[in-house]
């Protein structure tokens, strides 16, 4: 119970911080929107091509925007020794990690919820029954990359060039998430069901493995 309370405190702290500055959200949204626009110029896709390359474009936009948000999460803690302040509170390290992760997940999901209509609009898709499974895939994929991303952001915040270090560390590790999310999004948009459950199961498995290991390893990241 205390653990959940601590987790919630950290979560609310990050939400409040973001609400007051709106720095991460606006950067994420604008950047992801730009990705959608640039890819449209790069491929100039017709109706059929959209179904083939659309899922890839969508997930590139999501993950790139996600990295921007994750970078902010610990960059802001580095200023004025905020992280030391958080560490001085009698909190479980696991609760700090999960609280920060939940906040990142929340920001990324909100950004995705705003982006998805733009994606549908720009690429002239008409979604109806596809929406519930698509939302599930977005949720599972985002849990996967923010779980590892929060841990790696805490690490890369200590380096010079932290903005570069995070994607360099993160992208190779989230290859399974990219594959699973892009493939299942593609299957959903093309109204295919064969193989869909195995990709969704793969995403869920990845989420569980990396949430648990990241929670365990986070202890060592914060240690002085």
């Amino acid at each position: 119970m205390r653990f959940l309370q601590q987790l919630f405190t950290i979560f609310m702290k990050d939400l409040r911080l973001e609400w007051r500055t709106r720095e991460a959200m606006s950067a994420m949204l604008l950047f992801a929107l730009l990705v959608l626009v640039i890819f449209n110029f790069a491929f100039n896709p017709d109706r059929e091509m959209v179904l083939a390359i659309g899922p890839g474009i969508l997930w590139v936009a999501f993950t790139f925007a996600g990295v921007l948000g994750l970078n902010r999460a610990f960059a802001s803690e580095q200023e004025n020794g905020c992280l030391s302040g958080v560490l001085l509170t009698p909190m479980d390290r696991g609760a700090i990690y999960l609280g920060k992760w939940l906040a990142n997940l929340c920001f990324t999901l909100i950004a995705e919820a705003i982006l998805l209509p733009f994606f549908v609009l720009f690429f002239n898709l008409s979604l109806t029954t596809e929406i519930p499974p698509l939302l599930l895939v977005c949720l599972l994929g985002t849990i996967g990359f923010t779980a590892v991303g929060t841990l790696l952001a805490a690490i890369s915040a200590n380096t010079r060039l932290r903005e570069v270090m995070l994607p360099v560390l993160l992208f190779p590790i989230i290859v399974p998430v990219i594959i699973g999310a892009v493939q299942s999004t593609g299957l959903i948009l093309n109204h295919e069901t064969e193989g869909l459950t195995s990709f969704i199961r793969m995403l869920a498995l990845y989420d569980v493995i990396f949430l648990v290991t990241s929670t365990l390893l986070f202890d060592f990241v914060l240690e002085e």
Binding site: V148, L151, L152, P172, I173, I179, M202, Y206
Partner: peptide, 19 residues
Amino acid sequence: VVGILGFLDVPVVYMSIRW
């Protein structure tokens, strides 16, 4: 931490690409 995380990822990557 990265050394551990990276190595744990390898079998997952292999399985996901096989799938």
